[in-house]
Every structure is written in structure tokens, then in C-alpha cells.
Design a protein around this nucleic acid. Structure first.
Lengths: 338, 338
DNA sequence: CTGAAAGCGCTTACAG
DNA sequence: CTGAAAGCGCTTACAG
């Protein structure tokens, strides 16, 4: 740290070759004479040479980095992940694994304030070969501004006029439909309450629409919450006359709902069925185990990476709007035997 | 993407200023005349100019990126996080939040094979201002090789001769000690079985040593597993005569243990107490709720960032070996009333 | 407050 | 197979 850090020139001098040769040895792209290669490698070792990524990136015009920009709504006081965070963790892991296979690392950045998303996105984009914008971290302004490099929007609403923005979403409508059909067809429920998510969430909006469409006149007037366990708890306490089944827009609210009902001595699923959406790990372990719709978080991340790479190779390909399938996960809270 | 991307020169020309002025406007470091600043900003907007991070990094010698290198041992088939992954998610989140406040983004990279850790670490290091090496992703070879830039080792074993590597670990010994004392003092248990972790985990080693030391002649010969729920399950099935209490080296094994005991009709905590280590969210929700020792995952990540930044400012400061406190989390599986 | 110019550390045609 | 040299797009002293 104190002594000057060695560069390709130092390595070249020590190995008795040109910097071009050092560069070739580094990326072992060109075939070097084994002896030459070895000399260079020794010099690198002896000098403790570390290539400068910025210089490489500047020259080669590729950073080998893919970025992810998201909104961090989590509670900084809590280690317990809320839904949004669990979702993001899954996406990050999926991205990382897919990126790794292709020789990319993942750069992540978050903001709390949606208004800061544009600046963050720009700053991440400037250091990467492509960027994924998650949900509400994808304001139209950002999308427009970043269009010089591949952008994929995940779980967001994307108003793209030029047609170069790829999207990845899940089939919210299909998931809700399968869930409601199960409640209606398998269990004969006819009085359904929907506890929806926040109005500004694109996923929440799609789920609500789908519920309304498929439940038809079996639907009560929907309630709404903020996707937290607490919202489910509060809703459970406020419930006066019990429906046959309660469809929650995510698992956390369903879990809070079940806890709140239990407080009041109301049994799930005997007195009322409760189902969720997301498929978080916790749902498997509560009593009764939660019937839900599983979102493929890692595949979402992996798909985003794939789309990024495709557009890197073919900038002008038509935009893809990927809808990943969701999967009905029947457990006990709907009334099915475990 | 097709048209050439604009550079500072284009912006400068359009704004009728020099590139130096554009640069100053970008970093708003120097005070520009408001009118000048505005002209530059308009030009940036009109051109859709995106600064080139590599070029900035090359010149300024700072990337404003902090890297995290870890081993990904997780099951790619499963969305359900295992312990190691939950731990990493927590650390990543802690790093991201701490980094964000200081204007850094986080670059993450993982490998499956420990032998590949060095190459990955080098590649991450070359794009960042500092790097944290997690656990087994911190081979001595990597530490030596990277020493030109700030390195902090988290939950690893670090054999550093030169004294510039900072470390962050948790107080494994203190945690185990509090756990065993509770079992012995509060519940009067005298026959303790320890289900340890893999031999190559530094954390596992410390926990085992501490258990042996504090349990003394109350300890049976320790068993060991691989930190998965499955290992706990297998151990439960293999158990012939029941101890008073089973101390598991992590929560996942404790959860598997409880499930395995239940299979056999053995009640926890009535017939045997079971406790874990880590404090994962799931432990709160199982029946009985898991008594454990809480690791402060996010603070670990945050501390790593703090140490990185300190060393960035003061390269020659003496190395810090941080031990973050753990916290005994008494719930029901030890026999305490919930 | 602003500009001209050097230089950051690589890679990549272009020769040979 | 290897080298000389230009140039990637910024920032930063140095002047003024």
C-alpha cells in the first residue's frame, strides 16, 4: 500500500517482454510460447502484481460486472427478513449464480428513497455492462436515461417506448387464479375476502385484478395492507364476520393473519381458510403449513442475467417480456390434509 | 447502443466549456458558476450522457466499490436458504447498508470450489477499493496476494504475518458458554450431547472447543454434522439413549434434530432439551420455539465496511480483530416457558 | 472560476 | 509468437 503498486510495465520489464505480452498472458487469449508465459507468470507472482480493473475496463469497454438496483424498504433494526428482502435475496442469489457461470460479478446498490433511484441507477450503470432494475426502483426516468446499456426491469411496470427494455415478471394472474379455483372447486368456498398489497406495487395490482376477475361475486370488498405480518395481524383483529377463506396478497400477511386469528380463538383452516402468495420458507414451518403460490425467485434473477447477456450480444433484438410461471403449493391452511 | 456513446468531450463541446469543467460539474467538487453548471447539466441531459466508471476509476484511483467474496455451498435446486446462505444474506445486507451511507456499492462474487477462491478474490479486488473475504473464501494465499488493498476477513481463520488484515468474528465461545450455563444452571442438566459442525469451519471449531471447556465432565463424546437440517435429522434417528440436552452447533441442525425426535415420539423439551446457534428467523416459528444464540449478521457486514474504510484512510494502522458479541436467545426448546 | 494538457494502466489493431 | 504505439474517457495539478 505504501510502495507503488506494480503495473504491466513493471511486470514486462521484469519478465523481459513487452506489455502486450503481459496483457496476453493475463487474459490468456493469444497463444504465447510456454516459456514466455511462464516468465510472465513468475514476474507477476514475484511482484505481487494485481491488474487494474478500471484500466482493463476502459480499454476493453467491458467491465464484466452486472448491476442490480433496488429499493431497500427493510427494517434496518431487524435481522428478520421481510418479504421484500427475502425476495431480493433470492433474486440476488439467482443473479449471482447465473452471472458466475458467464464470468460476471454482481454489483448491488439500494436506496430507501424512490426519488434517489435514478442517481443510484446511473452510478451503478456507469460501472457495469448491464443493469437490472427491481420493481419500484425502475422509474421511467431511469429507464430512459440508462438505455445506452442493457436494462432489464424485474417485477416492475415499464413504460418503454423504444423497445429495448427486457422484462421479467411472474405470472401473478395465473397464480391467484389457481389459488382461488382451488378454494372454490376443491373446498367449495363461496365467500372470499382478499387482503391486498400496497397500491404502488405492480405485483399487488396484478394480483388484485386477477382475484377480482376470478372470484367474481364470491368476492367481498377487498381490504389492503402493506405486505407485512403486522398488516395481517391487524386485519385479523378487525374482522367481524368470518368469510370462508381469506386470500392474502403475500405470505407475510397470511402468516400475520393466522396469528391474529389464533389470538381470537379462530381456527385455521377449520373456521376459515387462509392462503398466501410468494412461497417463503417460513410458510412451510408454521402451523398450519401455509397454502400459497410459489414465486421462482432464483429463476427470476437467472432470467434477468440471461436477458442482459442476450442484449449485450444483440442490442437490437426485440424486447422480451418474460412471465415466469408460478406454482400452486397446497399445504394445510386451505383445509387440505397436510 | 448503436450510435456512439457520448463522452465528456461531446458534453464539453455542446456546453461550450472544457472537459475539465464537465468533470467538475459531474463531481460537483469545485464551485462552478451557476450558469456554467446549468449549461453542462443541460448538455448532459440532452446527450443522455452516462459517465464511464472505468475511466473515472482509472484516473481517480478509486472505484467506490467494496467487494465481498464468499463460498456458495448452497443447494442450487432449492430456494430455501440454508444456514450459510441466510448468514451471507445478512452480511450482504449489512454491508450494503453501511456502504451506501459512505457512497459505496457492493460487488459480490462467489465460487463453489475453495480452490477457485483466490482467482475470484483477485478478480474482485481488481475492481474494488477493498474486499471482504468470508470464512473459507479466505485462504492464506488470497490474503497474501491481495494485501495491496484493504482486506477484511470475516468469520475466517487468518494467518497474517504482516499485520494489515482486519478481522470480524463473533464471540462463539461466549455464546456457547452462556448457552451451556443456562442448560446447567437454570435447568440442572448434567448429561449433554454436542452436535458439532464440519471440521473445516473456524466457527465450528471455536464452538466445539468452548462447549468442551464449559461442559466439562457433563459432556458426552461430541457428534458432528455438516450444518444442514438433514444432519440433525440423521443424528436424531441415530440416538440410542437420551441425554438431558442436545447442543447443536447451528440452528438448522437443531431444527432437524427436533423434527427427527418428534418422528420418534420424543418430546422437546419435556424429554430432552435442544438448543441451537445462529438465531435464524425460522427458529422463532417452529414448535417449540428454538432457544439459541443470536449472531448479529448485519452488524458483521457493517463492521467489515467500517474496517475497510478505516484502512483505506489509514493504511498503516494496526490490525483490528473485532469480536462481536452474541446474545443468548431463550425460547422454549430448552425447557423455559415460552 | 475555467482551460490546456498530461497521464492513469491497460488492450488492441497493426506490423513483423 | 511478439512488440511499438495509439488510445480508451476521464481527473487533476498547473496556469491564468
Amino acid at each position: 500500500m505504501t510502495e507503488k503498486t506494480p503495473t504491466v510495465h513493471d511486470v514486462a520489464r521484469r519478465a523481459g517482454v513487452s506489455t502486450a505480452t503481459v496483457s496476453r498472458a493475463l487474459s490468456n487469449s493469444a497463444k504465447l510460447q510456454p516459456a514466455t508465459l511462464q516468465r510472465v507468470q513468475r514476474a507477476i507472482e514475484e511482484l505481487g502484481y494485481l491488474p487494474n480493473g478500471a484500466a482493463r475496463g476502459l480499454t476493453s469497454r467491458r467491465t464484466r460486472v452486472l448491476a442490480l438496483c433496488f429499493l431497500d424498504l427493510g427494517d434496518p433494526e431487524s435481522d428478520a427478513g421481510d418479504d421484500a428482502m427475502l425476495y431480493i435475496d433470492g433474486v440476488v442469489r439467482g443473479m449471482e449464480r447465473a452471472a458466475r457461470e458467464r464470468g460476471y460479478a454482481i454489483l448491488i446498490g439500494a436506496v430507501q428513497d424512490p426519488d434517489a433511484a435514478l442517481d443510484l441507477a446511473v452510478s451503478l450503470a456507469s460501472r457495469s455492462d448491464g443493469i437490472v432494475l427491481l420493481g419500484q426502483a425502475a422509474p421511467t426516468s431511469a429507464i430512459q436515461r440508462l438505455k445506452r446499456l442493457p436494462v432489464v426491469v424485474v417485477a416492475g411496470r415499464c413504460e418503454d417506448d423504444q423497445g429495448r427494455i427486457d422484462q421479467v415478471r411472474v405470472d401473478n394472474a395465473g397464480g391467484i387464479t389457481a389459488l382461488v379455483r382451488h378454494l372454490v372447486d376443491a373446498h367449495g368456498h363461496r365467500d372470499l375476502l382478499y387482503l391486498g398489497g400496497p397500491a404502488d406495487s405492480p405485483d399487488a395490482a396484478e394480483r388484485l385484478d386477477a382475484f377480482l376477475a376470478v372470484a367474481g361475486d364470491r368476492a367481498r370488498k377487498p381490504w389492503s395492507g402493506d405486505f407485512t405480518q403486522h398488516a395481517g395481524l391487524v386485519a385479523a383483529r378487525a374482522l367481524t364476520d368470518l368469510p370462508d377463506a381469506i386470500v392474502c396478497a403475500n405470505d407475510q400477511m397470511a402468516i400475520g393473519m393466522i396469528a391474529g386469528l389464533r389470538e381470537r380463538g379462530i381456527r385455521v383452516p377449520e373456521d376459515v381458510a387462509v392462503v398466501g402468495f410468494d412461497g417463503i420458507d417460513l410458510g412451510r414451518h408454521i402451523q398450519p403449513a401455509l397454502t400459497t403460490v410459489r414465486q421462482p425467485m432464483q429463476p427470476i434473477g437467472a432470467a434477468a442475467v440471461t436477458l442482459l447477456e442476450r442484449r449485450l450480444h444483440t442490442p437490437d433484438r426485440p424486447p422480451t417480456d418474460l412471465r415466469l410461471p408460478t406454482q400452486l403449493q397446497i399445504r394445510a391452511s386451505c383445509g387440505c390434509p397436510q
